[in-house]
């Protein structure tokens, strides 16, 4: 036990200092919280507007999509809070921050992840949580053991999957540097995809955002399972239970991407 505390102490020391730094600028922190919440609300509005125009979209109604949005945005915002700054890797590369990580006796990725935390994104997670609760209530989801287990599994797997996306993107940014926006297509595009009814996607999108980057598994499929909806040919409702498998796959992808990126940094680029 004492050993584990010693292993975690460096990370705790860095994170604690980050939290203190953010909270010390109260006015600016409050502003960040407010704007972060507004982002969540606008994103919900974006989806809601579509469902106000038509009754059902891809087999889901407004109530169902609010549940999908709730699960997806809660998971994404929490992952974003802890892993979001992996997106700043190009800045870290230019400032030489990464070289400094090499001089410390912890794994690079662990140092990068724990080098910062964005508490303001918790405000957006709050919007996701409200949508999730509202979705559960308006859909009259029964509080059965199965549903509770599925919900917990979905949120935890979703957080893991989205976190993996940030890490994967970090690995790719070693190659892309100025072209880092390309990874936004899959990280933020992935978030957008996760809040949609995946049944409207054509074959290529199913391959990319259904399976390769398993976005459909973060919220859409678990919601189908919970609501007892059938889903489509490629993404049937019962797949919701496989959310943890998707999360594991996402992490395989992420760690492979990170490894290739670091190899490139040490070996090819400079």
């Amino acid at each position: 036990m004492g050993d584990r505390t010693a292993v975690l102490a460096p990370y705790r020391a860095v994170l604690a200092s980050r939290v203190r730094a953010q909270r010390s600028h109260r006015a600016s922190f409050r502003l960040d919280l407010g704007s972060s919440m507004l982002v969540g609300v606008v994103e919900l509005a974006e989806i809601a507007v579509l469902f106000l125009t038509v009754d059902r979209l891809g087999g889901l109604d407004l109530a169902a999509i609010v549940l999908v949005f709730g699960i997806a945005d809660l998971s994404f915002s929490l992952a974003d809070t802890v892993f979001g700054h992996c997106d700043n890797l190009p800045t870290y590369l230019k400032a030489g921050t990464l070289d400094v990580f090499y001089l410390r006796p912890q794994p690079l990725l662990a140092q990068l992840v724990t080098s910062d935390i964005s508490l303001r994104r918790l405000a957006r997670a709050f919007v996701g949580l409200v949508a999730l609760v509202a979705g559960l209530v308006v859909n009259d989801v029964a509080w059965s053991l199965g549903n509770v287990a599925l919900l917990v599994l979905a949120v935890l797997s979703g957080i893991a999957t989205f976190s993996a996306m940030f890490v994967w993107a970090g690995g790719m940014q070693f190659f892309l540097v100025d072209g880092y926006e390309a990874t936004n297509a899959f990280v933020y595009g992935g978030r957008y995809a996760a809040t949609q009814p995946a049944s409207v996607w054509g074959r290529p999108l199913v391959v990319v955002f259904g399976f390769f980057f398993p976005m459909a598994f973060t919220a859409y499929l678990p919601a189908l399972t919970m609501l007892g909806l059938p889903g489509g040919d490629w993404l049937p409702g019962w797949l919701g239970w496989l959310a943890p498998v998707a999360a594991v796959w996402a992490w395989v992808l992420a760690l492979a991407g990170w490894r290739i990126g670091v190899r490139h940094y040490q070996g090819g680029g400079g």
Binding site: A9, P10, A13, V14, R104, P105
Partner: peptide, 17 residues
């Protein structure tokens, strides 16, 4: 850069165990 100098030392002491 945004922390008092001594805090950097404290963090680094933890980093190096």
């Amino acid at each position: 850069w945004d922390l008092p100098t001594q805090e950097s030392f404290r963090i680094l002491a933890a980093v190096h165990g």
